[in-house]
Simulated scan of single mutants.
Amino acid sequence: MEIKVCGPGCASCEKTQKAVEAAVALKGVQATIVKVKDFQEIAQLGVFSTPAVVIDGQVKCVGRIPKQSEIESWIG
Rank of each mutant, 00 (worst) to 15 (best):
M1R: 09
I3N: 06
K4D: 12
K4A: 10
K4E: 15
K4I: 09
V5N: 02
C6K: 05
C6F: 10
G7K: 11
G7I: 09
P8V: 10
P8Q: 04
P8G: 15
G9E: 12
G9Y: 09
G9I: 12
C10I: 07
C10A: 06
A11W: 10
A11T: 10
A11H: 08
S12K: 15
S12F: 11
S12H: 09
C13V: 11
C13D: 03
E14S: 05
K15D: 14
K15G: 01
T16N: 08
T16S: 06
Q17R: 04
Q17V: 10
K18Y: 05
A19P: 04
A19W: 00
A19C: 05
V20I: 05
V20S: 11
V20T: 06
E21Y: 00
E21A: 05
A23P: 06
A23S: 02
A23E: 12
A23D: 12
V24Q: 02
V24G: 01
V24I: 09
A25M: 04
L26C: 02
L26I: 05
L26V: 06
K27V: 03
K27L: 03
K27G: 00
G28M: 07
V29T: 04
V29E: 12
A31L: 02
A31P: 03
A31V: 04
A31C: 03
T32V: 10
I33T: 02
V34W: 09
V34P: 04
K35P: 02
K35G: 07
V36M: 05
K37N: 08
D38S: 03
D38Q: 06
D38K: 01
F39W: 14
F39L: 14
F39P: 08
F39K: 05
F39Q: 12
Q40P: 07
Q40Y: 13
E41Y: 05
E41G: 11
E41T: 11
I42C: 09
I42Y: 10
I42N: 03
I42Q: 03
A43M: 08
Q44T: 12
Q44S: 10
Q44G: 09
L45F: 14
L45I: 07
G46E: 01
G46Y: 11
F48A: 13
F48L: 15
S49W: 15
S49L: 13
S49T: 15
T50W: 10
P51T: 04
P51C: 12
A52L: 11
V53N: 07
V54T: 09
V54I: 13
I55F: 04
I55L: 07
I55E: 11
I55V: 14
G57C: 07
Q58E: 02
Q58R: 15
K60N: 12
C61F: 08
C61G: 06
V62K: 08
V62H: 09
G63T: 15
R64T: 03
R64K: 15
R64F: 06
I65D: 00
K67W: 14
K67R: 15
Q68D: 12
Q68Y: 10
S69Q: 15
S69E: 15
I71N: 00
E72C: 07
E72Q: 06
E72I: 13
W74Q: 03
W74M: 04
W74A: 01
W74E: 09
I75H: 02
I75S: 00
I75V: 06
I75D: 00
I75K: 00
G76C: 10
G76E: 10
